[in-house]
Each structure stands twice: as structure tokens, then as C-alpha cells.
């Protein structure tokens, strides 16, 4: 079984973002970039499936600028067998990425595509679901465990207020939630080996996909700053400050001792 796994190059999760002075977006110049953390989890899951003898090949795919090659090399160092970059300088939105991935999936014919559930830059949480729709495949989003057997996939999903388990036929699309696994670190020998693994470059035009953005970002601003913190000395002072909040005030008006 072939597994396709997608990786996005994003601002490192530890970096505090700066907004451009003209409000046109977030400043990506001279900022540390890294693989989207949810995609690391997706890669780890794919590699574990191959190590367990369930997957035969793990193909990592990224869409974006040339520097996404670095992200793909990381995926290769984590254990992916080969990589595909769909190279473009266009600002890619989730629907465009889903269409590119659909085109790759139609060529590669994987039985399973694993994506991170969302990217930590645009926080859209759309691409996996869109890809599943375009392929008319079932989807198991926000997965926290996966089991693959007999052409079927069972996934436990994190949902509001609990969890549920789905069974879907393969081929299928899975999006990885935080607790699907703990990704490994790339070791130096594997980083060296990754440099020799195949990395193929294609373009949206070669795949016949129109990636023109559908949404226009009119402006990007900082959220309102909160008032500076008031540090209190003790619990009594704290209670005095929050006593006006209705849920606290109600308590304090009730007779004590009940």
C-alpha cells in the first residue's frame, strides 16, 4: 500500500509573528521556517505504517515555493521514501492545494493520504476535507489513532465533548490531530541519507490545475492589546477585583455556610 503524506512550510511555531507595517500580511522575511507541526505527525504516522509492514512506500508532497524542498528533505530524513514538490510562487489557498494534491493522487494512486489537520499559519483546517471531496473518498479528520487492516481503516477522531471511531474503506483521507503520535527527531545519518533520496519537481501548469486565489486578503492587523496586568498581593485582593463579575457577585450575595 502506498501512502501519500503532505507537508507545508510554515513559520516555526516558536516564532512570534510580525505584521507588516502596511497591513498587507505577516512578515516572512528572515524568519525561521519549519514543517507544520501537524504534518510532522502525519509523516510519523505514515512512516510507522511502513515500519509495521502495512505501507510499502511513503511519498511526501509539498506545494509552494522552491524552499519547500527543505521541508521535503526533512520529511525524507524522518523516513519518507521519496518526495514531490509542486512548485509555484502563487499564494496557495486550501482549495488550490487540494486540487494539486488530487492531481498528484490520481497519478500516484495511493491507498491512503495523511495530512496535518491544520496549518499553524492560516489555521484554515480545510485541505484534507477538500481533497477527500475531490477524490470522492471517505475522510477521517482529527484522528488520534489509526488501524489499517483488510482494506479498511479504523480511526478514532477527536470531537467536541469526546471521541468517536469510524470505519472507512480504502482509499481514504486522514487528517492528523495532536495525539496521533509523537514524531521522532531526524538523526544526522538520516539527514545525510535524505539528501540522496529522489525529489521530483512539478508545477501546477504541468498538472493542469488553476491555482488562482479565490479569497483576497484586504488587510492584516494585530489583535487589540489587552490592558496591562494588575498584580495582586493575595487572594483577598484578587477577590475584590473580580467581585463585580456576575457569577462571583451572586456567590458573594448568598448567605455563607451552604
Amino acid at each position: 500500500m502506498k501512502v501519500l503524506v503532505t507537508v507545508k512550510r510554515v513559520i516555526d511555531y516558536n516564532v512570534r509573528v510580525r505584521i507588516k507595517a502596511d497591513g498587507s500580511g505577516v512578515d516572512l522575511g528572515n524568519v525561521k521556517m519549519a514543517m507544520n507541526p501537524f504534518d510532522e505527525i502525519a509523516v510519523e504516522e505514515a512512516v510507522r505504517l511502513r515500519e509495521a509492514g502495512i505501507a510499502t512506500e511513503v511519498v511526501a508532497v509539498s506545494c509552494g515555493v522552491l524552499a519547500c524542498q527543505d521541508t521535503l528533505r526533512t520529511a525524507l530524513a524522518l523516513g519518507a521514501d521519496r518526495a514531490i514538490l509542486i512548485q509555484t510562487d502563487v499564494d496557495l489557498q486550501p482549495l488550490a492545494v487540494a486540487k494539486l494534491l488530487q492531481a498528484v493522487a490520481l497519478k500516484e494512486v495511493p491507498q491512503l493520504v495523511i495530512l496535518g489537520k491544520q496549518a499553524i499559519d492560516d489555521d484554515a483546517n480545510q485541505t484534507g476535507q477538500m481533497l477527500a471531496a475531490l477524490l470522492a473518498w471517505p475522510q477521517a479528520t482529527f484522528a488520534s489513532t489509526l488501524r489499517v487492516a483488510d482494506g479498511k481503516l479504523q480511526a478514532t477522531r477527536e470531537i467536541d465533548g469526546g471521541q468517536e471511531t469510524l470505519e472507512v474503506a480504502l482509499p481514504a483521507v486522514v487528517t492528523a490531530d495532536l495525539r496521533l503520535n509523537e514524531p521522532r527527531y531526524a538523526t544526522l545519518p538520516n539527514i545525510m541519507k535524505a539528501k540522496k533520496k529522489p525529489l521530483e519537481v512539478s508545477t501546477p501548469a504541468e498538472l493542469g490545475v488553476d491555482v488562482t486565489p479565490r479569497l483576497t486578503t484586504l488587510k492584516v492587523v494585530e489583535p487589540l492589546k489587552r490592558q496591562a496586568v494588575v498584580m495582586v498581593a493575595d487572594v483577598a485582593e484578587l477577590v475584590a477585583h473580580i467581585a463585580h463579575i456576575p457569577q462571583v457577585a451572586t456567590l458573594r450575595n448568598e448567605p455563607r455556610g451552604n
Partner: peptide, 8 residues
Amino acid sequence: IYAGNALA
């Protein structure tokens, strides 16, 4: 976007 550190 960006974990609420920017509003688009």
C-alpha cells in the same frame, strides 16, 4: 490567523 496573533 497565526493562532490569533493576527486578524485578517
